[in-house]
Amino acid sequence: MYFAYHTRFSQPKCTSMGLKKIISFVVVSYLCSCWGLTPLVAQQKNKTDSLLKKAENSNSNLERIDLWLQASGQLSSTKTEKALEYAQKALQLAQQIKAKPQIADANYQLSKLYLNHSTYTVWSIKYAQEAALLYAELNKLDYALAAYDLLDQGYTKVQNYDKAIESVMKAMAIYEKQKEQNAIAETYARLGFLNRKKANYVRALECLLKSLEIWENLKNKQKTAYIFDQIALLYEDQNNFTKSLNFYSKSLELHQQLKDRYKIAQISKFIAQNYENLRDYNKALT
């Protein structure tokens, strides 16, 4: 019995190939620890180095641009300066050979990189504008939508809500042509948020009600509840706590149906706060 157990669970013999793999793993792990790299980061570095080597050896300008942009994407979360350097190289070469799709792609990548740095948001907006114009001209609508989203984020960061709304409206025009009901509803909700930030409460409510109508028609309870929350917040901003309570109550009912404990607790807290604002302390405590 002991022999059978030992045979079944004993360690496999270490072949020369297996030994090489073990040694390789130990060496890589040691070098990673010396360089302050995790194996995942080291793997990413190897991939980036491979892309850059291919770009260096490539005879195709278009391929080099694509490889530089891929390398930029790989480096975006770890070495932003290097990521910017390769995106800029891609843009310069694309402009030199007048390759519009690649110019658009490089502008888009630069916009994404600069958006993560609050001090360079203006640059993010600049590159997103270029990308959006070119994508629209090339009729690459999905890419144009992504660029409009970057513009929305950039303008919102600098609190230029009029320009953010302008970008969102351009996206809305595309969604309406495509008859993408989910996207249209999401976009109306975004317009509601931006108009609320501007304190344009009438327009904000119009947009949120349009979003609400679509979600209700689609029978999407989660999204419907979200819009109820947004309308409640809108009325809170105007100190209309009675109407705010009305929409929070509708939201709570849907979250109870969805059995979302976190949202039930959160909305219940907001309801209590609204009762406090109305000085109805008995209901605030229930």
Rank of each mutant, 00 (worst) to 15 (best):
Tyr262Met: 07
Tyr248Met: 09
Asn57Met: 07
Thr121Gly: 10
Tyr30Met: 08
Lys100Pro: 15
Lys163Tyr: 04
Asn107Glu: 08
Gly36Ile: 10
Thr7Gly: 01
Leu208Ile: 01
Tyr175Asp: 10
Ser72Arg: 00
Arg8Pro: 10
Cys14Ile: 14
Thr224Pro: 06
Lys47Arg: 02
Lys283Val: 09
Leu245Ile: 13
Glu276Leu: 06
Val158Ile: 14
Ala199Lys: 01
Leu84Met: 12
Tyr86Pro: 15
Leu69Phe: 02
Lys198Met: 11
Ala189Gln: 01
Ser10Glu: 13
Gln43Glu: 15
Thr15Gln: 06
Leu254Arg: 07
Gln70Cys: 01
Leu212Ile: 13
Val168Ser: 06
Leu254Lys: 06
Asn61Cys: 05
Lys20Tyr: 10
Gln266Thr: 02
Glu186Thr: 02
Ser111Ile: 12
Asn220Gln: 11
Tyr148Lys: 00
Ile23Asn: 06
Gln96Thr: 12
Trp123Gly: 09
Asn277Ser: 11
Gln256Phe: 02
Ala99Met: 07
Asp280Ile: 05
Val41Phe: 05
Leu67Pro: 05
Gln109Ala: 11
Arg190Ala: 07
Leu278Thr: 07
Gln109Lys: 07
Lys197Ser: 07
Tyr120Arg: 12
Glu137Asn: 05
Arg190Val: 15
Ser29His: 03
Gln102Asp: 14
Ser76Lys: 07
Ser72Pro: 04
Pro39Asn: 06
Phe228Cys: 12
Leu145Tyr: 00
Tyr281Trp: 01
Leu134Phe: 03
Ala83Ile: 04
Asn239Gly: 02
Asn240Gly: 09
Tyr175Gln: 10
Leu51Thr: 09
Ala94Cys: 11
Tyr248Lys: 08
Lys54Leu: 10
Ala87Cys: 10
Ser118Asp: 15
Asp49Glu: 14
Leu258Gln: 07
Leu133Asn: 11
Ala90Leu: 11
Leu62Phe: 05
Leu191Ser: 04
Ser33Gln: 04
Lys263Thr: 06
Leu212Cys: 05
Ala55Ser: 13
Leu258Lys: 07
Leu278Pro: 15
Ser211Pro: 09
Lys126Gln: 14
Thr156Leu: 04
Lys54Met: 12
Ala55Pro: 06
